[in-house]
Amino acid sequence: MTDKYTDSLDVMLADGLVKSPDDFTKKVMHRISEHADIESSRRLTTRSLIGDYLKNSLWPAAALATSAALGGFQVIAFIFGIWIPATAG
C-alpha cells in the first residue's frame, strides 16, 4: 500500500505521529522474561502443592482405608452372628 501517499496529508499520516523508543524491543523482551519467570514459578508452586497434598493425604487415606476395612469386617461379623443362631434352629 505504498502507492497511496498522494499528498502531504498522506505523507504525514504514513510517517506516524508517535515514534517507538530505541529501547522498545529490550523493554518488551524484559517484560516477557518477567512473565515467563512468573509462569514457571507458578507451575513449580502448583507442582509442589500437588506433591505436598499427595504426601499429606497419604496418612489420612491409609487411616480411612483401614477404618473402612474394619467397619466392613464388623458388618460381616454382625450378619454372621445372626445367621449362626438362626441356622442352629
Binding site: L13, A14, D15, G16, L17, V18, K19, S20, P21, F24, T25, K27, V28, R31, I32, H35
Partner: peptide
Amino acid sequence: QHAVFGFLGRMGFSQADSEDIAQEVFL
C-alpha cells in the same frame, strides 16, 4: 514495532499511551 506505533499514533494516542499499549500488544 514501527507499524504498531504508527497505528497507535493515528488512533490518536499520546506517545506515553502508545508505549504502554504497544507493550501490551506484544505481550
